[in-house]
Nucleic acid binder design. Structure first.
Lengths: 226, 226
DNA sequence: TAGATTGTTAATCGATTAACAATC
DNA sequence: TAGATTGTTAATCGATTAACAATC
């Protein structure tokens, strides 16, 4: 029963880690639908992979199933939630209240995953002091004081590119543990964890795939039909 | 019946495709900085990988370099741009003008990559007809007519989860070639290409990494299990 | 028990890295 | 030419898939 926490902690590959939130999503849906029990085969169909991979993935963290039965949906959901820190009550601040910052502030993306937004920051005197979605926007000059006092875990970085790097450095110095980076500069993990989002990259991947698709049509139909 | 289209079209792995937008980004920066020439070694440092991988990646698409010299930045930039379709003048519509839809509409993410937003759509009578960022918001009832007439390539899906699937189906029927999906349902590629963004997944990955980091501290400090 | 399905080891496959000949 | 750096083949590594014994 000894979990692999401790000295000989297993190294989990990034590929596995990146699949965890998808397991979480599908398990949420099964749970909401009232499904009591699932199997590696059913999960593999949802995930678009093999049952083998599902069992390998889950076994990185422990034996969550039962031979001959499968996996209990609520139990597995709880386990994955814990692994992903949903029950840790992380606190986040949003730095930069442009359109994207505000869109995130008003979206359910945080609460659904157990993250609480506790403050918004901006440099623009015109918006500082205004209330958005229950939060009075604070002045960036207050950032360090606020972090010292409230110790937010996560900073959502939605500032203009030109001030992105210096802002990230301030945040790390101020002690945030992770940066959810929406600017299109590449932040590399120093003391804090960084998750680069790079929305533009996904748009480009889509464009590439569309182009590839069209080329196929062109060649197959020899240009007669689009 | 050769499934291979064209003249021996090479199959490019997804790993390579996902790195292309990053090459594009770093080359844009080098170009903007006026750098004339680069090498696989320099690019590998920016990308955080090996020179070998850079050469392998680029050679999937052609020999863009010159032995003994390296790569011309403007030339390589142009090549990667073409591969990614930056010069194809793709048109996009934004479906759903909530906070996220509006944030995207007003962001430079499209134009920078050669994609032009041509219309916004919403069901809400209260916003239909209003002008946002140069576009009069159209009623969703006009969607099919508009697509028939203007043939947008890409639909940005920022509608509520509850109507996400049906909206995606309407878009595919209406002939869009790609869906940039911001809803947190999993759309699987049918006739159109799909790029699922799943912002929440990246937030969860960040939370996982923060938690892992903290565990390490805990263990080093106290040897305590979590 | 018999049937089912996990947990886990072994085999396969693909991606990354290394090496070096080609050549600018 | 000599030096540099690519393009490309070969070796390594890691991730995925297959197989099956364990066991509920």
């Amino acid at each position: 029963m000894a979990r692999n926490v401790g000295k000989d902690e297993k190294i989990i590959s990034e590929a596995v880690i990146n699949r965890l939130p998808r397991y979480f999503r599908f398990l949420s849906e099964l749970k909401r639908a009232g499904v009591e029990r699932t199997s590696s085969t059913e999960l593999s169909e949802l995930m678009g992979t093999t049952a083998s991979q599902v069992r390998q993935d889950l076994n990185c963290f422990g034996g969550f199933g039962q031979q001959g039965y499968g996996y209990s949906v609520p139990y597995l959901y709880d386990k994955i939630s814990t692994i992903l820190g949903v029950d840790r009550d992380y606190c986040a601040i949003i730095v930069g209240t442009g359109n994207l910052g505000k869109a995130l502030a008003s979206s359910p993306v945080f609460e659904k995953r157990g993250v609480h937004v506790t403050a918004l920051f901006d440099v623009d005197e015109a918006v500082v002091g205004k209330v958005f979605f229950g939060h009075r926007i604070k002045n960036m000059t207050e950032l360090e004081d606020y972090c010292k006092r409230e110790k937010p875990d996560i900073a959502v970085l939605t500032v203009p590119r030109s001030v992105a790097r210096e802002t990230a450095e301030r945040l790390v110095s101020a002690g945030v543990k992770g940066i959810w980076n929406f600017t299109n500069i590449e932040l590399s993990p120093g003391k804090a964890m960084v998750q680069n989002v790079h929305l533009g990259d996904t748009l480009m991947t889509l464009c590439y795939n569309i182009g590839k698709n069209e080329n196929h049509y062109d060649e197959e139909a020899t240009g007669e039909e689009v």
